[in-house]
Design a protein around this nucleic acid. Structure first.
Lengths: 176, 176
DNA sequence: ACCTGAACACCGTTCAAGT
DNA sequence: ACCTGAACACCGTTCAAGT
């Protein structure tokens, strides 16, 4: 007599990553504004209120998603050589990763990018610059400037060539 | 016998300006997200659907409001001297006008600034630069760079000193 | 033209209740 | 702990109808 499975495993518990995956899929497929709590919940097969077990509110989902995208940048870029080249490579990678998901763009413009991955990337850039002889203060300000340019350029749109041109000018202005 | 006023002037028709005024007051008083169609309508004493007589949708209200704020910049700044000084003054004025209404910041980050006032300000900056001997192409790219920096810096927050420091570096990078 | 009222198809968030 | 269902207080937008 085959034993019927008792405790049909009601469902493995949800995951923050699953929720972020679903949010990004919605954003990519249906544009900004599609990453609704209710739609995310439906996509993962849960009740809307379940999302609140994992995130305190909708804005937190957006922040976590942005930090995930930022995290992909650090992993993708390795770099040696002069600091200008490294910063340039990271800024180019940051832009390309972020605009790969146009639906997520309003999200990253709405939050001053924070979170573990953004912090790590920032640290890395600061180290790069102080390692090249910059003052802590100068490096911090340079990081702000480059970040502002990247975010603003994303907000403005425009192609890679324009972006790279401006980035080179920014780096030129930063040279001591 | 006093004649009772016939035709009690049912109400002077609404105005686009009145709607934008109400939206800005809401944004200033109650933060981003407060400029709801329904709240704007209530503030001007009309039904929500009346707003659609003046604007095609909510996004259009946002765009018009941003362009109004941008318009205040051009009016406020007069300038003579080297082009760097003029661009610097305009960028400083732009930032200060825009962050004077923190509730409106998400609005201007959400739209690539367009509209008559933004166009006029852009033209003015372009003329300034070509007048100083820049190529049309170089001037257009410089405008993009400065605009991107201003928008990004607003998104990032930070104080005037940090902003001015970065702006000087940007202008330095643009010097031929 | 300008405006209203009601309706439609949604939202985010909370909370008692269930396992 | 994790999840549900129902409810609350909202949204933007459309549209027939009124003046």
């Amino acid at each position: 007599v085959p034993v019927p499975p008792r405790n049909p495993q009601p469902r493995p518990p949800l995951t923050e990553a699953e929720i972020l995956d679903a949010a990004l899929v919605l954003l990519d497929a249906r544009g900004p504004g599609a990453a609704t709590i209710r739609r995310i919940a439906a996509a993962v097969g849960a009740a809307p209120s379940t999302v609140y077990t994992y995130f305190p509110d909708q804005a937190a989902v957006g922040r976590a998603l942005v930090d995930r995208l930022v995290g992909e940048v650090g992993d993708a870029v390795t770099c040696d050589g002069r600091w200008e080249r490294c910063v340039e490579a990271l800024a180019l990678a940051l832009r390309s990763r972020l605009i790969a998901h146009p639906g997520a763009v309003p999200l990253l413009l709405g939050v001053a990018p924070a979170g573990p991955n953004a912090d790590a990337l920032g640290r890395r850039l600061i180290d790069l610059m102080t390692g090249a002889g910059m003052t802590d203060r100068y490096a911090a300000r340079s990081l702000r400037l480059v970040t502002a340019y990247v975010l603003g350029a994303i907000a403005l749109g425009g192609d890679l060539e324009q972006f790279a041109w401006g980035l080179r000018r920014v780096l030129r202005g930063l040279r001591t």
